[in-house]
């Protein structure tokens, strides 16, 4: 998402706050570096920048009290609220105490939500190209496709700690229910793959990637029609000719655990935690 669009969205958020709280005279959003991301029309850029610098200094010094969360500077009738969300700060300058609660809620809900949506949109934009490439490669179904797909899965597993934390937060908020897919069992042999790792149709895995984005999925739950179930790791099936055919290749060990065998159907769903 480009900066102009981001500023436009934030400016709208700032204006909405002013509409909801008419006695708020000035509103602006700034970063820890003092950059003004959005401001209302009543405040000059220079004044907002000066205020941001002063407030950032307080924010930095607040490490001694555990790190900055919020601040209110006030007198009998006027106040300056500063709320922090991620690396952004929202400042509200107002004159009405009775609206403080409303403003506070708006600031704590609306702006972080807008910022989160913007961040998610940026993440989505960044990931859009690789995801399209992956789909295109899948459609090619040539010899190179499988190794590329595997590389994509390996990349997905090697998630940075921050991304993993974000993914966890996302999982805790509004993740869709795991899709259930019925797959046909085939045998798999070889020493490269672990005894506890299943190979799954690449198209099914792609659907999970489309559904959950960058959320790390390490395991799947495999359940037989008789109700036997187990969890195991998974990888995409290497052979291109199996792509989209609804096949799961299970090592003998897993088949024994499930008391099932080649040619039987199993229900597979990603473990999303």
């Amino acid at each position: 998402m480009n900066t102009e669009l981001q500023s436009f969205i934030l400016k709208n958020a700032v204006d909405e706050i002013k509409k909801a709280c008419p006695k708020v005279s000035n509103t602006f959003i700034f970063t820890d570096q003092g950059e003004i991301l959005a401001k209302d029309d009543n405040i000059e850029e220079k004044a907002a920048a000066c205020a941001a610098n002063a407030l950032n200094t307080v924010s930095k010094r607040s490490e001694t009290i555990g790190g900055f969360e919020s601040a209110t500077f006030y007198n009998a009738s006027n106040r300056v609220h500063v709320f922090r969300s991620n690396s952004y700060n929202l400042a509200l300058v107002g004159s009405e105490e009775s609206e403080g609660e409303v403003c506070s809620k708006l600031a704590r809900i609306l702006v972080p939500t807008v910022l989160k949506v913007i961040e998610k949109s940026c993440d989505f934009s960044d990931e859009e190209t690789p995801a399209e490439n992956l789909t295109a490669e899948n459609e090619e179904q040539d010899g190179e496709k499988d190794s590329d797909l595997e590389a994509e899965v390996v990349t997905a597993v090697e998630v940075e700690p921050d991304e993993a934390r974000k993914a966890e937060e996302l999982a805790q908020t509004f993740l869709p229910d795991p899709p259930v897919t019925q797959l046909l069992i085939e045998n798999v042999y070889g020493i490269v793959l672990g005894k506890d790792t299943a190979r799954i149709d690449g198209r099914v895995i792609q659907q999970w990637v489309d559904l959950y984005g960058d959320l790390q999925i390490d395991e799947v739950e495999v359940e037989t029609l008789n109700g036997q179930s187990t969890r195991c790791k998974f990888r995409p099936i290497k052979d291109a000719k199996h792509y989209g055919r609804g096949i799961i290749q299970l090592p003998q060990k897993i088949q024994q655990t499930l008391q099932t065998s080649k040619g039987e159907l199993v229900i597979v769903k990603p473990v999303v935690e």
Binding site: V58, S62, T64, I65, G66, G67, F68, E69, S70, A71, T72, F73, Y74, N75, N78, V80, V93
Partner: peptide
């Protein structure tokens, strides 16, 4: 404004 008080909330 004539700011005379401040509350800074940390974690």
């Amino acid at each position: 404004l004539n700011i005379t008080r401040a509350v800074v909330t940390g974690k």
